[in-house]
């Protein structure tokens, strides 16, 4: 390793402040519960810090961490299923989810709330795998090959799944457009 090159562990420590909120939002979208998402975020990064130094050089950290996060979310859903409990998704009206409106203009607040409603409505219509892939693409900006790696899919499957998910999103938008006009 070159003297100037930093280790994966150092990279993860450096990126934690930027990456952790994104991972937590991703987990909240998958699990539908902010409290469970916070616990899952901690578990994700505990696993990441334990394993990060075993990664091959040049591995991009964020897709790898999102992959761990998804596995954690699947384990939580499975455990909840075994215990007979179902995660109840929060509604958009959930007061704690909406950011402080005082910081934004009324028009921006309205647009932001509408976006929240439309996207949540679309996400609710998607199966878990497709929802995760869509979020990774549009909310977290991962490339198709990174999504394929995260989800354990081929590149072709990743493209197809995201295409199908975007169709649902567009249909939801069209409904919204029809309702808004």
């Amino acid at each position: 390793m070159a003297p100037t090159e930093i280790s994966h562990q150092e990279s993860l420590l450096r990126d934690y402040a930027e990456l952790a909120p994104r991972v937590q939002r991703f987990l909240r979208d998958l699990l539908g519960c902010a409290v469970t998402a916070a616990d899952a975020t901690q578990e994700t990064f505990v696993r990441a810090f334990r394993k990060v130094d075993g990664l091959p050089p040049g591995t991009r950290l964020s897709p790898w961490v999102f992959g761990i996060a998804r596995n954690v979310s699947l384990e939580i859903r499975k455990a909840r299923g075994r215990q007979g409990r179902v995660l109840t998704p929060e509604t958009p009206e959930h007061a704690e989810r909406i950011a402080d409106p005082a910081a934004r203009s009324p028009e921006t607040q309205l647009l932001d709330r509408e976006s929240l409603e439309v996207i949540d409505r679309a996400l609710d219509r998607l199966p878990e795998e497709r929802r995760a892939a869509l979020l990774l693409r549009l909310d977290h900006g991962l490339a198709y090959d990174e999504i394929a790696q995260t989800m354990g899919w081929t590149l072709a499957k990743a493209k197809v799944e995201i295409f199908r998910a975007r169709e649902v999103l567009r249909a939801t938008l069209a409904e919204y457009r029809g309702g808004a006009s």
Binding site: Y16, A20, F45, F49, D100, R113, L138
Partner: peptide, 28 residues
Amino acid sequence: LERELFARRERALVSPPVPPLEDVLRAV
């Protein structure tokens, strides 16, 4: 449109505090 919607949604959402890095490292 899709990207803009997600960006707006992110603005609309509260960002709850993430687990402190110290807690994560202690757990590790």
